[in-house]
Design a protein around this nucleic acid. Structure first.
Ligand code: NAD
Ligand code: NAD
Lengths: 215, 215
DNA sequence: TTCGATTAAAGAAAATATTCATTATTATTT
DNA sequence: AAATAATAATGAATATTTTCTTTAATCGAA
């Protein structure tokens, strides 16, 4: 297979990466309360996680804590935002301006986390030519002509049956990271990162756990 | 601590639960192609996962496969949808009809996956009294008066700083499952399930992996 | 029928992630 | 100045998840 010999040593564990934005949110609240330092112990207690997990997660970044004091809040916020790629703004194309795609276009929160949607693509004549929140919608066929090297991120919100095809189109057009909201597992070469975000998956977990609590 | 002695034997692993909706999507496409049976081998190859992982994941449901044949597509779809709680419609309240909350209200996809938002709550006078896609928006203070036993799910899309407070309000009002879109870790008793869905977390993972591919 | 190939299922092994235990450091108190 | 307590950091142990291996079943071809 294709990725067998790719060493993944040095890769930050995905669970750690997923927790980091939570630390960031916590730290921003701490900053509001004018806390200058915050310790792993306190973060852990407030967030309901293990204290050593906090230190271990943070050890992947460049931050160093001070014994008996903790981490400097401002410094840690900066380091985390930078480490997570939230400081530099990545441009993104959106594919599929339907129900979910629209939602993402209307959503202003993403800008603060390093992502700016600059154009959308669809096949429905009813939406092509329109603009949503200042983002123009083109026909997918226009994508190939645009090929902007500065846009490396693509958001995939087309119906499941077209997901693989559109993903291939994206890859061919130079997209290096696909944020995949469809429940389809995309098959592409190793040079393109596919990040699955299936809301249904989270729903499924919640329903399952709710069923267990009742017992 | 509080959940230490709670046996979690018998709990379906979260990674397995998260994969199940992907299988479901795959199966629905297979059904469209009029496939009557599909084997774990083929599912695995098409989806780019390990074949034994597929059988192991499916073994948590009631389905049994046929040696040398595979699983019956229709039966497996039914079993999975039922197992994941997508067949019965759960009513839900939404807390925070802002940017993301609006997106979810406009989103018609959720109905098909067992979730129906029946009312929204906010504190902003500009939105209270209005309706979005037929869902009325009330002031949060109205929530306590409503206390509908049939609504056990709450969707949390308020600003981070109010997340914990609103979550407590939800729990006090009888909500048993909180779909938490804020990056805050909610602290509540064991009788309430909190399902975190932080879009930023997924973004963070994608950015990180993209940085590594460049090397 | 007999053989070979394909598969589900279940258990073993390996890899990964989390939690625990230890050590060294340093603010604060005595 | 010495003792104490709180903490970061690191390595060990444990738990969880994934992958590998084996077994038994059965379809289709010879
Ligand atoms: N709606 C939800 O709640 C939700 C939640 C999570 C995931 N998803 C997933 O996101 C995807 C989209 O869902 P939705 O509800 O927005 O569907 P939708 O039908 O509302 O939107 C899909 C859009 O994609 C466009 N499209 C179709 N083919 C295309 C192509 N080849 N190139 C570009 N655009 C194309 C359609 O014209 C449409 O506008 C689905 O895969 C769905 O499973 C949806
Ligand atoms: N917008 C995004 O892209 C995005 C993505 C993922 C997660 N989130 C998270 O979701 C949350 C909401 O984000 P947003 O962008 O929609 O923010 P927003 O400010 O647009 O919306 C928040 C809404 O909550 C309401 N609200 C405030 N206090 C409330 C209370 N006590 N009870 C009920 N409602 C209250 C506000 O009036 C507002 O309408 C945030 O925590 C954010 O981090 C946002």
């Amino acid at each position: 297979m294709s990725s067998e010999n790719k060493k993944k040593e040095g890769l930050v564990p995905e669970p750690s990466l997923r927790r980091m934005p939570c630390y960031l949110a916590y730290l921003k609240l701490a900053k509001r309360r004018n806390q200058e330092f915050v310790s792993s112990t306190h973060i852990a207690r407030d967030m309901g996680v293990d204290p050593t997990q906090v230190t271990k997660d943070l050890s992947y970044t460049s931050i160093v804590g001070k014994t008996r004091v903790g981490y400097e809040v401002n410094a840690l916020i900066e380091v985390l935002e930078d480490f997570l790629g939230f400081t530099k703004l990545d441009k993104a194309y959106l594919f599929g301006a339907g129900s979910l795609g629209n939602a993402l276009l209307h959503d202003h929160g993403l800008d603060q986390y390093g992502l700016k949607i600059v154009a959308a693509f669809d096949v429905d004549p009813k939406v092509i030519g329109r603009s949503i929140e200042g983002v123009p919608i083109f026909h997918v066929s226009e994508f190939e002509k645009m090929k902007d090297e500065n846009v490396q991120v693509g958001i995939l919100t087309v119906p499941a049956e077209f997901a693989q095809d559109v993903a291939q189109l994206m890859a061919a057009g130079g997209i290096k990271g696909i944020w995949n909201f469809t429940p389809i597992r995309i098959r592409l070469g190793d040079d393109v990162v596919v990040q699955d975000t299936s809301l249904y998956a989270h729903l499924a977990v919640m329903f399952n756990r709710m069923g267990h609590v009742k017992k």
